[in-house]
Nucleic acid binder design. Structure first.
Lengths: 315, 315
DNA sequence: AATATTTATTTGACTAAGTCAAGTAAATCA
DNA sequence: TGATTTACTTGACTTAGTCAAATAAATATT
């Protein structure tokens, strides 16, 4: 469904951004080049060895027009060309050292221009700006958008627990209808974990992608020789990438090294994806109990992994 | 601070959107008009009675160029002009019925064009798209953007506590250097509050602006006839608007109505802005103790408000 | 293998988009 | 009152950008 307001907002944004770019185009970065020429030079500098056709496909220019600009560049010594041995109709274009200098200058000015624009934009807004731009690109041009940055796993930092509580409470409310008692539970669990944190026996990991938190898990001391795996969570957008397994393996490895004999966890039957991960990691269901602590009726489950066995089976 | 990656992403987005607009400009909506002409016609249609100078200021065109286009429009019968009685140098431009027809056609095509682009974009992505575009406009052009929406105060919803924990922990770590034990404390407080929530004796409020959470406070049952005010927080962007006072007053009113005799709170000397609000609301400092629970040394303070007195003084 | 068709690029021949400088007339400033 | 600024217009260009046709090599077709 496409709302008229959606279309209006997009039209308004297009007008806004046309202005923004139009102003840029005025006297393109205070150089004797046009915006189009700048774009061509950019493409030439960014990649090596292009043919005119490729350039054309990407920039959508009139071939005659492109041909003339390239001629000018060739005469000015910004680019040179050699016939493509594979296709003698085609020339392979290459940027010269002189051309590269212009390219760098243009890039430098463009960067400074943007830096000026950002002068009065605080860090948080900058982050939102970048995020919004990437969102727009990803939606409007799914093919061309940059591949998602890699997921990194890092230790806890301040604010992570709050994020985790919000993300998990919201997601499980939406997906399974859990109520606010669930948020309360994880807030208490998370709070106690940090309050009594023992760096030798406990650990927490946050998965991050492109600076945005997307997953978590932690190992808490369960007393005796039992470690507890808690608060495993994956944002919907990173499910199915094997990240859950990685996080659980992280926990198993740490618990083993820390000298625990068992890794135990409590979960609910509705969380089938997580349970699948536990199962394949070797956890065994040791007890179940029906409850309705979080609104809908569900079955709480305790799973355990014998860490010695796990080690053996991994070897 | 401006990161190079930020600049690069913005450059990439500019290139991307230049292409998008360039494609639009190609054969502007399959009409015999240029993009610039279309823009002018749009501005003429969107508002009535413009002068050439105003148009120029907003579109940033060369005056000579504008003048020629307007002449063409006048000859074609799209606009007419009458001298401005207040300034005889100026002409007041008006769109004619014929011009309005063209304007409508152009708008219609532009809308259809966008609708086509959105054909394969699901509803959630459309919402994110619109949101991102508004974010970009608001950040890049704070003046022209819509005024900030009003702050509304609403009851707790799932996910709010997580947000509060993250926001408060992050803000106080940044501003006062508090460590993760502070996050732990508020997580526990928030968790217990929701877990044992008693709707008759307790309440929580979240302040929201434009769908974004910006502040919070809650009243918890302190046992006996004492209520506790907790987790008062304001996002940096809404500080100084009197919102803190409003939230505290909310708490006082509720506690009074709920039959409590005292409203008590615990805070720290470093939070001077909050303390100022408590003071002016009539709270009195009843005890202090030095501690370093959250890293830096600070002074924990207990403040109390006698609700009967408060009521009298307000009357 | 010969012919037809398509693709990559260039050139000629324009059109009109867009710019710069100078001019006119009214408004505002000193 | 004269000097300066502002709102627009016009003349005189330049050059960005287009369309059609040409060339030469690569592919497809029969």
């Amino acid at each position: 469904m496409i709302l008229p307001e959606t279309i209006d907002t997009i039209r308004a944004f297009n007008r806004f951004y046309t202005n923004k770019i139009g102003v840029l185009a005025k006297d393109y970065l205070a150089t004797p080049y046009t915006l189009v020429e700048g774009r061509i030079l950019y493409e030439m500098g960014a990649r090596e060895r292009v043919s005119a056709t490729e350039l054309n496909r990407d920039l959508g220019l009139d071939p005659a027009y492109l041909s003339r600009i390239l001629k000018k560049f060739r005469e000015a010594g910004f680019i040179d060309s050699e016939p493509d041995p594979a296709d003698k109709r085609s020339q392979i274009l290459n940027i010269t050292d002189m051309g590269r200098e212009i390219y760098e200058t243009l890039g430098e000015r463009s960067r400074r221009q943007i830096a000026d624009d950002l002068q009065n934009v605080d860090d948080a807004s900058q982050a939102r700006l970048v995020d919004s731009m990437q969102t727009i690109r990803a939606i409007l041009d799914p093919s061309g958008a940059l591949p998602p940055p890699p997921v990194i796993i890092r230790p806890y930092r301040i604010g992570d627990m709050g994020w985790l509580i919000e993300a998990q409470a919201t997601a499980y409310a939406r997906e399974y209808g859990l109520n606010e008692k669930f948020e309360a539970l994880i807030a208490e669990v998370a709070g106690k974990f940090i309050a009594n944190f023992n760096p030798e026996r406990e650990r927490s990991w946050i998965a991050e992608r492109g600076g945005k938190r997307v997953g978590s898990v932690l190992v808490a001391d369960g007393g005796g020789d039992v470690a507890k795996l808690r608060l495993l969570y994956l944002d919907p957008e990173v499910r199915g990438l094997g990240l859950g397994r990685t996080l659980v393996e992280q926990c198993i490895k740490f618990s083993t090294l820390a000298g625990y004999k068992k890794l135990s966890l409590w979960t609910n039957d509705i969380l089938t994806a997580a349970i699948h991960i536990y199962k394949t990691a070797g956890f065994r269901l040791v007890s179940e109990e029906r409850h309705a602590m979080f609104g809908p009726e569900c079955v709480g489950q305790t799973w355990e992994l014998n860490l010695r066995e796990a080690k053996l089976s991994a070897a």
